[in-house]
Amino acid sequence: MSGTYETKHAETGSAPTPLIEVTGLHKQFASGGRFRRSRRSVHAVDDLAIRIHAGETFALVGESGCGKSTTARLMLSLQQPTSGDIRYKGTPLSMMSEAERRDYRRRVQVVFQDSNSSLNPRKRLGTILTTALTVSGAVADARRAVARAHELMEDVGLSPSASFFDRYPHELSGGQRQRVGIARALAPEPELIIADEPVSALDISVRAQILQLLQRIQRERSVAYLFISHDLSVVRWVAHRVGVMYLGRLVETGPVESVFTRPVHPYTEVLINATPVADPERAQLRHVHVVSGDVPSTTERPSGCPFHPRCPLAVETCRSEVPELLPVGEAHAAACLRATERVEGLRLP
């Protein structure tokens, strides 16, 4: 099981109960359907195990179709897992009473990538926030909700709030809309915010503002983030720990510093190498190994290690054996059959 590494830590008993603990999470979709020939099952999330502690930022990175957004939807209860467990402060979701479930939903909120479609175009900003406050049960009476909505707006930098309260989403810039999205996520007083590519659609200058805002909110409220991104440079800045996903599986996880400077899984290193560096003196694309081939679709998952067809280090056993996520360093684990060689200095060609 790829959960081994996480479980081992739990057994030592020293670590406090994580805010969220995901174990053995699977999600399969029946795909196709329109044409019988193409009907197959897609394994979007495959045996995923992650834990997120209060007040920390855990980032999930990977390319399109790697299952990171499905993971988010499973944790938000927008979809039901095929199997596996999500524990909130030690209690599995499946064992929760109706009231506990409601509390869980309230404590786990979301910020989406597309600030345009994540706000109801027909609602004023004030209404969006007061609705969020009352529906989630954070505030009981309407007058209190209005006052609280103003506070939230000021908190996320929509100031003076009075000038924003009656505006419609389309009257705002992308960055301002994303601030509203953040304010709405904060309304129910969450403990975890799942941020699904929250800055990917934003311009560079605005992106920095939003990332700073997210960091300030974390400092002030010690909220935890599950930060989902395809952009490694953003993850490098915001996350404490990171998990790299490939075709539904976690291939490497650990502290950001360690994963980014000493990547063990070849895929992690390939991703780092492929990320453009904004410094012509260190431009790397011309030199370093660029992985060939396409990201395979989840319907055609390769046997053995899912990365082996593209992996520059693949050996015969990689075709048949599915590697487990095993410790390779301080809180750092990788699912690669050649992990030990990698730690000892095996480099990409």
Binding site: A208, L211, Q212, Q215, S233, R236, W237, F260, V277
Partner: peptide, 15 residues
């Protein structure tokens, strides 16, 4: 505003 893969510390000043 550009985030580098190797850098650490805080995000540069935002406009």
């Amino acid at each position: 505003g550009v985030l580098s893969l190797t850098g650490t510390g805080n995000i540069g000043f935002a406009v």
